[in-house]
């Protein structure tokens, strides 16, 4: 092999070894650096007991915190509010409480995620950030509370719920499956 050929072989081999070294260090480094971009394995959303059905006022929505284990990276905060829901109850069906009309919405505004409040007139849900307004049945209203177009891409997000009877006390309870959804889109997609 002549000198030029030997040198280009050495260059090629050095490059290969250098690339191996770079890969051994680089792959875990990059994989670690972008780990926050991976989908989080959030705990399976489950039905949580939220409030006694009888304690809910009729035709006047109330906001109730959902209590659970709040995970923040390595720390677990036991029994902390992990979110809030709006519950709007109709007339109590005393014959079969499970048939009581009830609406359960996540209090997270589908626009940019602020907590939706009750409007000043008490007739609408209004988000305090950009005045997105919703009817009590969750429907998006085209015009904002203060005029202008409603910035929310969809109505309030309904949550799955169940009305159940406690085995011991025989009280009727509302159980809600609290979930979070992608913001800013016309369709409802659960965050995973």
């Amino acid at each position: 092999m002549n000198e030029t050929g030997r040198r280009s072989f050495l260059k090629w081999l050095s490059g290969l070894l250098g690339a191996t070294v770079a890969a051994i260090v680089g792959i875990p480094t990059v994989s670690f650096a972008i780990s926050s971009l991976r989908k989080q394995t959030s705990p399976q959303a489950s039905l949580r007991r939220v409030v006694r059905l009888g304690d809910l006022p009729q035709d006047r929505p109330v906001m109730i915190p959902i209590v659970g284990d709040l995970e923040d990276a390595w720390t677990v905060y036991a029994d902390e509010p992990i979110g809030r829901v709006w519950l709007a109850r109709g007339t109590l069906d005393s014959a079969d409480p499970t048939k009581t009309p009830l609406k359960v919405f996540s209090a997270v505004c589908p626009h940019l995620g602020c907590t939706v409040q009750l409007g000043s007139d008490g007739k609408l849900f209004v988000c305090p950030c950009h005045n997105a307004a919703f009817k009590f049945d969750g429907e998006r209203i085209a015009v904002c509370a203060g005029g202008g177009q409603n910035p929310s891409p969809r109505g309030m997000d309904p949550l799955e719920y169940k009305i159940v009877q406690d085995g011991a006390t025989k009280d009727w309870w509302v159980e809600v499956k609290y979930e979070q959804f992608e913001l800013g889109k016309p369709t409802i997609t659960p965050l995973t």
Partner: peptide, 22 residues
């Protein structure tokens, strides 16, 4: 020339040491 005559040896040693570390 240092590159690649010496670099080549450097890389062999580095790759070996990092191999042990890995």
């Amino acid at each position: 020339p240092y590159w690649p005559n010496q670099t080549f040896r450097n890389m062999i040693v580095l790759a070996f040491v990092l191999g042990v570390i890995a």
